[in-house]
Design a protein around this nucleic acid. Structure first.
Length: 575
RNA sequence: CGGGAUGUAGCGCAGCUUGGUAGCGCACUUCGCUUGGGACGAAGGGGUCGCACGUUCGAAUCGUGUCAUCCCGACCA
């Protein structure tokens, strides 16, 4: 491709509305252009990158035995009502009506559609196992789209769905996908960590996420997930799912008798611990949440934090948030108290389900709110002063240096970008949607399903997050829009132009994806653009051509060497 | 949904306090000159100043409303 004809416009400056580096660079280098909030045009260079990633994904999926198909982007509400997700998916689901006022939605994911395909097309166990996938645009009306391609509302995703006879088959399908994913990201030039994860709105039991770790100390960290991992045994999990063994702390208070004492203005654990001069770990914290519209009180040791996803899962909820002040007021009124946040305790709460984290059950002579403002109960004990809730669960957020559940080593934490995920769905959709097959014994059985996603556009953005420098993008070769760019320093110099054309045509003949910067620009402009756009190799034809020498530059590491044009061609062909 | 900020040419911004009919840099067009790290000179083209209503003889500027965008929070009792 000749640069003079390529549809690309690089900018001198970064766009003002971009925060993270992948967003800034992709806009500035002319790869993407925003159309609306969280919705982007993929310009020719970007589209080439996306197609590269897609074809790697296709190859690996096909090799793994999956078959590609394409499902509609617009989906009827009926299917979503069947699965029950029409009501629970929330505002993220973009709903619309057709001209007959029939309700539709834009697909944020395709479990419903694929299940309907399976129940019509798969009748017998003989057709199983099977894995169907597509690469397609998805729409999710995010609360807060941001970070360019990393969290858009419309994005490109590969989604695959496996159907098996039994759990054993699912385990196999799952493992095949896990292996394929590892290869896909490796081939894209991305190191990923496969971490255990919560299965979220999609549902199911087991799930893993593929994370690109981005723990550089940059102020604008694009990693939206916290990943806890063990360097010794390899355990790793998203913070929404991670578990740990606690380090020992003081769990017995200094109090010899239980009494309610004044604790003025101690709204936070920090203030309370300071006021009483006690460690936070002998305070029992009581937090009010709203899970799917119902009130929930969560008890946890004062030095620890509630993990909301874990808490929500205790109640099999879809939505969780901390209660507002007016809601706390309502609970207090109903229970005959009047305390505000900071002084809440579990005792006597009405219309509230209570769950205790494992951390509180061993507390002795501890401190706890008693639903009276500016007062706390100290020296409390379970069964004596307060009933230990019957519901006890792990609802705490793991912290760095907690011990690994598998080997006991201290855990570390890092930020990650989730580029892929795999779920064991089981029969969640097949049962609800009555998608069954006939097994060996003539019995009707629901499909055992798995689903597997890769964010294609997010993977591209993650690659930029991971591979760039102060001059611009440094694409991994496998997903670069072009492999090499040939730059004649001066378009006035006939010899330079001739040699550049020669190299360009030779490479074209060998089917190398090559750019020729034939623009009538000054050298600086062309060289800056080549760096910014991030083409992996650059062959610069300049003055040294009189000695039959060109500059060969590898963008990664910015390594240059001076060789003959034919050697440069040979070098490219050997890569 | 709450808090803060910003909407002026494709991009980055000034002008607004103190109202008088819009400007700078980059990009774009033409000409000249220049060609190893975002040159220079000259001449051009492009904007209903987010939108609506209001105040005024007159509004980018003041007021009200609205929409959009960005950031922060969604919070640890």
């Amino acid at each position: 491709m000749r640069m003079s004809k390529l549809f690309v416009q690089t900018l001198r400056e970064f766009p003002s509305d971009a925060e993270v580096i992948s967003h800034k660079l992709l806009v500035r280098a002319g790869y993407i252009r925003k159309l609306a909030n969280g919705i982007y045009n993929y310009l020719p260079l970007m589209w080439r990158v996306l197609k590269k990633i897609e074809s790697i994904v296709r190859e690996e999926m096909d090799n793994a035995g999956a078959q590609e198909l394409l499902m509609p982007f617009v989906q009827p509400a009926e299917l979503w009502q069947e699965s029950g997700r029409w009501d629970v998916y929330g505002k993220e689901l973009m709903r619309l009506k057709d001209r007959h006022s029939r309700e539709m939605c834009l697909g944020p994911t395709h479990e419903e559609v694929i299940t309907s395909i399976a129940r019509e097309g798969i009748r017998s166990y003989k057709q199983l196992p099977i894995n169907l996938y597509q690469i397609q645009s998805k729409f999710r009306d995010e609360i807060r789209p941001r970070f360019g391609l990393l969290r858009g509302r419309e994005f490109i995703m590969k989604d695959a769905y496996s159907f098996d006879i039994d759990e054993e088959g699912l385990d196999k399908s799952y493992q095949i996908m896990a292996d394929a994913y590892k290869r896909i990201f490796e081939r894209c030039g991305l190191e990923t960590k496969m971490v255990q994860s919560d299965s979220g709105a999609i549902g199911g039991s087991v799930s893993h996420e593929f994370m690109v770790l981005v723990n550089e100390e940059s102020e604008n960290n694009a990693g939206e997930n916290d990943v806890f991992y063990c360097t010794k045994c390899g355990y790793s999990a998203n913070s929404n799912h991670a578990v740990s063994v606690l380090n020992p702390v003081i769990t017995e208070g200094k109090y010899t008798k239980s009494e309610i004492i004044d604790t003025p203005n101690t709204h936070s654990i920090d203030e309370l611990a300071n006021f009483l001069n006690i460690p936070e770990s002998i305070i029992c914290k009581c937090l009010i949440y709203v899970v799917d519209g119902k009130y929930v009180a969560a008890l946890i040791r004062g030095d620890r934090t509630v993990e909301e996803t874990k808490l929500m899962n205790v109640f099999a909820g879809n939505d969780i948030r901390i209660a507002r002040n007016d809601e706390i007021e309502e609970i207090m009124q109903l229970s005959g108290y009047s305390a505000i946040a900071g002084f809440i305790g579990p005792k006597g709460l009405k219309n509230v389900e209570i769950v205790a984290d494992e951390t509180v059950k061993d507390l002795k002579n501890f401190v706890i709110g008693c639903n009276v403002n500016d007062k706390h109960l100290v020296g409390a004990n379970w069964g004596v002063d307060v009933e230990l809730p019957s519901k006890i669960a792990d609802i705490r957020l793991v912290e760095e240096n907690d011990k690994c559940i598998d080997c006991g080593s201290p855990l570390k934490v890092t930020k990650g970008i989730e580029v892929g995920n795999i779920f064991k769905l089981g029969t969640k959709y097949s049962k609800k949607m009555n998608a069954t097959f006939t097994d060996k014994n003539g019995q009707e059985k629901p499909f055992i399903m798995g689903c597997y996603g890769i964010g294609i556009s997010r993977t591209a953005a993650a690659a930029v997050e991971r591979h760039h420098d102060e001059y611009g993008i440094i694409w991994p070769i496998a997903i670069a829009p072009y492999k090499v760019i040939v730059v004649p320093v001066s378009d006035q110099d006939e010899t330079q132009m001739k040699v550049a054309e020669y190299i360009y045509n030779k490479l074209l003949d060998s089917k190398v994806e090559v750019l020729l910067d034939d623009r009538s620009e000054r050298a600086g402009v062309k060289l800056k653009d080549a760096d910014l756009i991030g083409i992996p190799y650059r062959i610069t034809v300049g003055k040294t051509i009189k000695d039959n020498l060109v500059e060969f530059k590898t963008r990664a590491g910015n390594i240059t060497e001076t060789i003959s044009p034919d050697d440069a061609i040979a070098k490219i062909l050997s890569i």
